[in-house]
Write a protein that binds this DNA or RNA. Structure first.
Lengths: 157, 157
DNA sequence: GTTTATAGTTAGATGTGTCTAACAATATTA
DNA sequence: TAATATTGTTAGACACATCTAACTATAAAC
């Protein structure tokens, strides 16, 4: 897989996400989305075009190539899963989880990501519904100790 | 708290960690530790000196100021906690956990870090010892399904 | 169909972080 | 203590990512 800087990955991801809601993607939209000025976008897009991730006709619309889409799905997939884990498992606020996911998505390994996804799924597929250990963790966060029922009578870890 | 780039944080952390085992810290050691050339170290150290994180006499030894030590402990603390979480909770390999911790330590928020530390502690202080949910998670990773005992007879989430 | 507004581009500057090559200071050792 | 080896520094180059200001192309309005 070709190496891309965090910055270029962000541009690809931005194009991907913008195209969920907009029929076409324009330079200006990307600038707004990433909070940068348009010349920065033009620069980045030109690099991405050269490297085969983006199609772009001068003064026209932008779109991801197949390779670009693939990469965007990878990065955005990590984003979503990180967000789910941070909010759903650790109970981090939505705002912070989003920010953290935006950063961490560029750095976390495939291996760790897989395990994290597994963990979220392990939680979501609990036969009991809301898993006892999650309730116990939330209790632990709130009161700084395990609930008295925790691990007594084999109730939960 | 003053802002520092990932790179400069790495230099501070390197000085901190090297000083665990070496009486004195030298430019060459940092270069080896971070796998960069010595001019890069000199550059970074000069910036850190100007900004009050490092004391350095030309051609002499290096040491962190009080502010530098404080920052180093913060960053390295995150590193250790991330490592513990990745290996201990998610079961990521030692090698990958170390690499991931090295990157993520610069980006993760205080809020998420706090929750993550809580979670590790929640695991470590389980009255049962090894928490049932962790065993169940490992089972889930291995076999792709919850063990039959899971959440039956109130055994565990 | 001109004029005006909007969007996109180019040129040039800045800041960061890295490198190689050449040079300077300290440490080692003969 | 003079020669040599090691370590540290400086100078200059390059890549990346951003910006402002000036310019150009397309779109909208009159």
């Amino acid at each position: 897989m070709k190496k891309l800087s965090q910055s270029l990955e962000d541009y690809i991801e931005a194009i991907h996400v913008i195209s969920f809601t907009n029929k076409v993607v324009r330079v200006k939209e990307i600038a707004k989305f990433l909070d940068v000025k348009t010349p920065s976008v033009v620069d980045a897009v030109s690099k991405l075009t050269k490297r085969g991730f983006v199609n772009h006709e001068k003064y026209g619309y932008l779109e991801l190539t197949e390779e670009g889409k693939k990469r965007a799905r990878e990065v955005y997939g990590k984003h979503k899963e990180l967000y789910k884990f941070l909010t759903g498992v650790l109970g981090v606020s939505n705002y912070t989880s989003k920010k953290d996911a935006c950063n961490i998505e560029h750095y976390i390994s495939k291996e760790a990501m897989k395990k994290m996804i597994k963990f979220t799924k392990f939680m979501d597929t609990c036969p009991e519904g809301n898993p006892p250990w999650l309730k116990n963790f939330n209790y632990y966060v709130k009161y700084g100790r395990h609930p008295s029922s925790c691990c007594k009578k084999g109730s939960c870890g």
